[in-house]
């Protein structure tokens, strides 16, 4: 099966979301949202807590069913009827704030599990793939450690390797450094930067301004279920015109 990428503004792209809406009862959390992400683009999304950023990521990964709109990634289209949601999950990776590693499995088993079970890869090949990805996140010497024996930063890097092992077309990060001690944030951001430079398409929800300035192709300001600002990092961070974005960036910068 050749995965047909969606087309955004006449160009082939990774993600094309149109009219995406998510409600929890009467509360609209994602409001008629359009979002295009180009191939190898790195998008950093910022916004107040409770603004729906996490929910949007969960919709783009297929963890939440959408109430309206459509999401296209690599030949998979998801509608509110939930069809294709499973294929969406296998094509879009998600790195959680709390890592959510499988505590009963070692690092290498954590990474090899989904390739083995979902892609039905042979055990030996899956372990080889897992080793490769753990080396990529600089954990080649911790293959057989259990999650509880690793630091927060190491656990988050295992979580990245686990997502990468499914060769996602798009990798989502939900505040990947918010649960980490300051000295571990750097090692996680460094791996994310390497990934970005290797051409991975990424949407990162994070308030790491330095990372946004240095690595992002585009910064979004998200509030009340809508994208209120979108542009080059410096433009959005320093010269937002939207009053709510202005107040927000004045406090985080």
């Amino acid at each position: 099966m050749t995965a047909q990428n969606p087309v955004c503004n006449g160009k082939e792209c990774t993600l094309r979301a149109r009219g995406v809406t998510k409600r929890f009862d009467s509360l609209v959390v994602v409001d008629d949202l359009d979002l295009d992400v180009m191939i190898s683009e790195v998008v950093v999304m910022m916004g107040p807590s409770g603004s729906g950023k996490s929910t949007l990521l969960r919709c783009l990964n297929g963890l939440e069913w959408i109430d309206a709109g459509q999401i296209d990634v690599a030949g998979v289209r998801v509608n509110p009827d939930g069809e294709g949601i499973h294929e969406l999950r296998t094509n879009v990776g998600l790195v959680f704030q709390q890592f959510n590693l499988f505590p009963h499995l070692t690092a290498i088993e954590n990474v090899a599990l989904a390739p083995r079970v979902v892609r039905q890869m042979d055990q030996g090949l899956a372990l080889e793939l897992a080793r490769k990805h753990l080396e990529q996140v600089d954990l080649g010497n911790k293959l057989h450690r259990f999650p509880a024996e690793l630091s927060g930063g190491q656990q988050q890097r295992v979580a990245m390797a686990r997502a990468l092992a499914m060769s996602p077309k798009l990798l989502l990060f939900d505040e990947p450094t918010s649960a980490l001690d300051p000295q571990m944030i750097g090692e996680v951001l460094a791996v994310m930067k390497d990934l970005a430079q290797s051409g991975m398409t990424m949407i990162v929800v994070s308030h790491e301004v330095g990372f946004a300035r240095e690595v992002a192709d585009r910064v979004l300001f998200f509030d009340d279920g809508k994208i209120l600002e979108s542009g080059k990092p410096l433009e959005v961070l320093n010269n937002s015109t939207h009053p709510r974005a202005r107040t927000f960036f004045d406090t985080v910068l």
């Binding site: 294929e87 999950r89 990776g93 959680f96 959510n100 499988f102 989904a114 979902v118 997502a163």
Partner: peptide, 12 residues
């Protein structure tokens, strides 16, 4: 979070 992590990897 264990259910979510597994689902996000495409496990049924």
């Amino acid at each position: 979070g264990q259910h979510e992590a597994a689902a996000s990897l495409g496990m049924t």
